[in-house]
Computed example of a mutant assay.
Amino acid sequence: MRILIIGGSGYVGTLMTPLLAEQHEVRVLDPVPPRGDHDHVVGSAADPEALATALDGMDAVVHGAMGNLSQTDWPAPDTASAFEVNVASVYATLQAAHAASVSRAVVIGSLSVFSNEPVRLVERDIDEGSEPDATNVYGVTKRLGEQVARIAAQEHGMTVTVLRLAFPTPDDLWPLWALPVKDEPVQVRRDDGTPVPALAASDLAAAVSAALTRDTGDYDVFHIVGADDSGDGRWSTAKARDVLGWTARRR
């Protein structure tokens, strides 16, 4: 399959692009050149001409772009950038995809659509039927991005899949989370000390490939996480297993 990866040079893009390129013909749209020898269109999803050029001849598009961090409230997201990338560029990408007759799209979402307060997210029991309730800028913009994806699927008959990730990390650092704003990888733990494994890059890429096989002309959302789902009910990945045939191999 010929895939355009929006933001393929960013953190999440760098995790998944090399692995997706092993199975698919990959093109990257990003202002910055990607790592590796990949077809690269210089630009962003905010540029209609760059989008049209990058989507030409593609079978599917994966939106994995990330916004900038705030210069005044680091490491919080920059508000304007968060709305531009997580909402406006998702809208622009899906509109341009429809215009280019690209009917399949995967949008990289986040479990941050759920609030981390007053109860930490890792302590919450959630699945795809749970109502997103985040109120911070990142969570709100990711929530809005999901709505944009749903609208595009309904308006254009596209197959649009949102993958809500948590703690994506390189395989060689798993189960630690290589949070980009931290100097060292961290082990995420629940309040009782139970470790929560991060999502390995290879499992992320496998989930994206599985999502790209959907061809139903509708919208759907899946939780793609490395957390153990073996009995406590938190962060269920049962839907991804049953619909996409995906389970985290590193767990």
Rank of each mutant, 00 (worst) to 15 (best):
D171L: 06
G217P: 13
F222Q: 09
M158I: 00
D30F: 08
R251T: 10
G139V: 00
V107L: 09
S115F: 00
G67A: 13
N68I: 00
T213Q: 09
A105L: 02
N136S: 10
A88D: 01
G109E: 05
S103N: 08
V137D: 08
D215E: 12
D127A: 08
R2L: 00
G57E: 00
V208M: 08
N86A: 05
V12E: 09
E123R: 14
L144W: 10
R214A: 11
F114N: 06
D39E: 15
G231H: 13
D30R: 09
A207W: 04
A88N: 06
G7N: 07
W74Y: 15
F167V: 01
D127K: 04
P18R: 07
G226C: 12
A105Q: 04
S101N: 14
A45C: 12
K239V: 00
L20K: 08
S209F: 00
A238N: 05
D37S: 15
L55P: 01
G8E: 03
Q187C: 03
R143M: 13
P180Q: 10
F83A: 03
N116Y: 10
A205D: 02
F83P: 01
G8I: 04
L19Y: 04
V208G: 12
D191V: 02
W174D: 05
S44L: 05
V87L: 07
G231F: 09
S112A: 15
A227W: 06
S236L: 07
T72M: 10
W235F: 13
L20E: 03
Q23Y: 02
G129L: 05
R189P: 00
V87H: 07
D192S: 09
G193N: 09
I108Q: 01
P195D: 08
P132T: 02
P185T: 06
R234F: 06
R214Q: 14
V119I: 12
L144Q: 08
A88R: 08
A46H: 15
N86Y: 05
G10H: 07
A166S: 08
V106E: 01
A210I: 00
W74G: 01
R143I: 12
A205E: 03
F222E: 10
A206F: 02
P170F: 02
R249I: 01
E123G: 14
L19W: 01
V42T: 15
R250C: 06
T93D: 02
R27D: 09
W177C: 10
R35A: 14
P34L: 11
V160N: 09
R35S: 14
I108E: 04
V137P: 05
R2N: 13
W246C: 12
S115W: 00
A88V: 01
E155C: 12
L244M: 11
M58K: 01
V85A: 05
T237H: 03
V102N: 05
V186K: 13
A97N: 03
R164F: 02
A134S: 10
I5D: 03
D172S: 10
T237R: 12
I126M: 14
I224S: 13
F167Y: 11
Q187I: 00
Q71M: 12
L212R: 07
G109K: 12
Q71R: 15
A80K: 14
S89K: 11
D242S: 14
V225K: 11
